[in-house]
Amino acid sequence: MTETHPKPEMASENTIPILVEFTGGLEMLFSDERKHRLSVPSKDDEGNPVNIGWLVKHLCDKVMKDSRKEMFVLDDHVRPGILVLVNDADWELEGEASYALQPNDNILFVSTLHGG
């Protein structure tokens, strides 16, 4: 697995390049790949800028091949025990699901570990 940072790319008019990462075991739900380079539309179906809420649904519907959706999303929210980081900052500091994605954003999903 090669792991590199995304090359700064210019956002085309319709899409935004982002890097989505999974760690703490979540990568197992996403084809065992920690890093996913995605190109997402800049606007959702209603013409609003896409946010993390949209991204979570997109990941669940389009990227995740595992059938255990409940291990990622519960009741339309990221399941308890998963932290979401926007460019290495807790998404709570950035507006949570309403944070509008920017070109070359790094969105990290961390599953809490409990072992010791």
């Binding site: 075991g25 291990m71 519960l74 399941r79 308890p80 025990g81 599953s111 409990h114 072992g115």
Partner: peptide, 20 residues
């Protein structure tokens, strides 16, 4: 504050089951 709700039990993997 960081984890207001506990994780679902089937998402909790121990070192005995998952390895370390």
């Amino acid at each position: 504050c960081v984890f207001p709700k506990p994780p679902p039990t089937d998402s909790v993997v121990s070192c005995g089951d998952g390895g370390i």
